[in-house]
Nucleic acid binder design. Structure first.
Length: 373
DNA sequence: GAGGCGTGGCA
DNA sequence: TTGCCAAGCCT
């Protein structure tokens, strides 16, 4: 660490800072389901769910997840369809596949006990620097930094750190600061308090400094520049993708669904057959039929237009022209298997994990069906 | 290091 | 409406 990176660090009374911060946390912390105990498995699950995801969104998912998989061992033995279903709608689905892989690793290598050293825990899939520090401090009481976006925002203000927090190497500056400031007696509360402060008081935009328990320690507040921090220079441009999809049924009122590839966007989730449109040469119905026949060897009939579904991802936007369609269930059984196609009843669809984009498509289909009755 | 990887809430 | 954000990690 270069000292000039954190010139205000040495001016902080770390004992007083810790006490003010932790006293506030002990009084004001939210009653959250993952704070009921310090089971390393539950702490781990909650930390993975909370990555880039709001607390209010996570709460019901966490409760259901622990209901379905109360212990690390039970989650390790779950099948992939079930774990994806548990994550359906949460986003960033590789999180749950990595968690599953890591939990199985803990079962096999560590006899079912989540490791408590930085070196071991960091080797687990999906456990990066933040999650490692969070589990080690919250579940095991180790004085390790857990630097997330909240911590960088809060500390950038308190210590007047103007490094760009969008740059990966900047995290180390904050980890070094935390190692100086962390309460060795209460590392769990210290780390959680910093994040709680970021969530409740030291928010992005205009923070509630008048309610802040540590504003006397805050150099940004002293200089009135809290709204200018943190510095974050990253704009990720998203790209538009045109798709044509069809909700295809057979004479038994079953739906044709397809399992997505094991890598990439929405990996291993199920979907209604769809294709990306690169050029606009053919009418969309014809394009869909040709692509479908090329991939699966039979040609469906494509019926009425259902809806144009717009769905925004973090890095791209889907624009999906959705049609209804009909197909006799005559696709060869081996082709169905190798093409990862399946006919399922509406009831059976409940057991499959679909991305939100396809839930929107199905909702539009259902409302269209209802209109026809 | 930069970009892939979801979703919903909010100004 | 549009863009930005919210307890990151992987490649």
């Amino acid at each position: 660490m270069k000292n000039h990176d954190i010139q205000h660090l040495s001016k902080i009374d770390s004992i007083s800072f810790r006490n003010d911060l932790i006293s506030w946390f002990e009084k004001e912390q939210r009653d959250l389901p993952w704070r009921k105990d310090q089971d390393p498995y539950k702490v781990w699950v909650s930390e993975i769910m909370l990555q880039q995801t709001r607390v209010e969104t996570v709460i019901p998912y966490f409760n259901r997840f622990i209901d379905w998989f109360p212990t690390l061992e039970e989650f390790a033995e779950a099948d992939e369809e079930r774990i994806l279903k548990a994550w359906e709608g949460l986003g960033y689905y590789s999180r749950v596949r990595n968690l599953h892989s890591a939990v199985k690793e803990v079962q096999e290598t560590y006899n079912g006990v989540v490791p408590d050293t930085p070196a071991e825990i960091s080797k687990l899939k999906g456990v990066g620097p933040y999650t490692a520090g969070a589990i080690l401090s919250i579940a095991y009481g180790k004085a390790e930094p857990a630097v997330d976006g909240n911590v960088m925002r809060v500390l950038s203000r308190i210590l007047l750190i103007k490094e760009d927090i969008a740059k990966p190497k900047t995290r180390k500056i904050f980890e070094d600061a935390i190692r100086e400031l962390i309460d060795p007696a209460k590392p769990s509360f210290f780390n959680q308090a910093l994040m709680e402060l970021g969530a409740l008081i030291c928010t992005p935009g205009v923070p509630a400094c008048l309610l802040c328990p540590v504003r006397e320690h805050c150099f940004a507040f002293q200089e009135g520049v809290q709204a200018e921090l943190p510095v974050k220079n990253q704009t990720r441009k998203s790209r538009d993708v045109q798709l044509v999809a069809a909700i295809i049924t057979n004479e038994k009122d079953e739906f044709l669904i397809h399992k997505r590839a094991a890598k990439g966007l929405l990996a291993n989730l199920w979907e209604f057959p769809n294709f990306e449109i690169h050029t606009q040469l053919l009418p969309k119905r014809s394009f869909f039929q040709e692509q479908f026949e090329a991939d699966f060897g039979v040609k469906p009939s494509v019926g009425e237009f259902i809806a144009k579904i717009d769905h925004v991802f973090s890095h791209l936007v889907w624009n999906v022209d959705t049609f209804s369609g009909k197909l006799a269930p005559l696709i060869d059984k081996d082709v169905m298997e190798s093409s990862k196609l399946r006919w399922v009843s509406e009831k059976e669809m409940e057991d499959y994990a679909f991305p939100v984009s396809h839930q929107k498509m199905f909702a539009a289909y259902k409302s269209g069906t209802k209109r026809l009755l």
